[in-house]
C-alpha cells in the first residue's frame, strides 16, 4: 500500500508538520510505562514520586520516544522508515497537562529526511528531538 504521506517533492526544508495535541492523562502515563515494561514507581505511584521530589507521576522517556515516532510517521505515512530518533527531555509530562508536538523538516536529501520535533506542555519544553527517516523510492531525482 502506498500513500498516506506527502508526495515526492513535497518534502522541503522548512515544511512544518501539523501540530498534534496529546492529553497527558494519568492513564496514558501508566499505560505507556506498562507497555514499555518500565515499572519505575515514579511512573505509576504518586506517593513514591512525591518522596523523590516530583509533585506527581510523570511520563517515561520510552513513551515520549514512541509518541515522537508516531507523530512523524503519521505525517510521512507507512512507507516512511525510521532510521534515527534522538530525544532530550526537559519539563516533565504530568497528569492533567497537554503536550503539543510540532515538527519542521530540517534536511531533505534524496530519500532521507530529517525532522526537528518539539513537544511543549504547560510548564515548558518536554522534549526536543531529531528524527531521521527515509522515504523509499522518493526524491532520487
Amino acid at each position: 500500500m502506498r500513500g498516506g504521506g506527502p508526495q515526492a517533492g513535497a518534502v522541503r526544508v522548512g515544511t512544518r508538520l501539523p501540530p498534534l495535541e496529546i492529553e497527558i492523562t494519568r492513564t496514558l502515563i501508566v499505560a505507556g510505562a506498562i507497555a514499555s515494561r518500565d515499572y519505575q514507581d515514579v511512573h505509576h505511584d504518586p506517593e513514591s514520586a512525591r518522596r523523590k521530589g516530583s509533585p506527581d507521576i510523570f511520563m517515561n522517556i520510552l513513551t515520549t520516544n514512541g509518541l515522537v515516532g508516531r507523530y512523524v510517521t503519521d505525517h510521512f505515512g507507512p512507507n516512511a522508515v525510521l532510521r534515527k530518533v534522538a530525544v532530550r527531555l526537559g519539563a516533565p509530562n504530568r497528569p492533567g497537562d497537554t503536550m503539543v508536538l510540532t515538527g519542521t523538516v530540517e534536511e531533505a536529501d534524496g530519500e532521507t529526511v530529517t525532522v526537528g520535533v518539539v513537544g511543549s506542555n504547560g510548564i515548558g519544553r518536554h522534549v526536543t528531538g531529531t528524527v531521521t527517516l527515509t522515504l523509499p523510492g522518493w526524491g532520487a531525482g
Binding site: G32, G66, V68, G69, R70, D74
Partner: peptide, 19 residues
Amino acid sequence: VMGDTNPAYTGPDAIAPPT
C-alpha cells in the same frame, strides 16, 4: 497506547515500531 495506527505494525508482515 501511542495511538499509532500505522498499518506497517499490523498484519502478517508486521514490523515492530522502531521506537
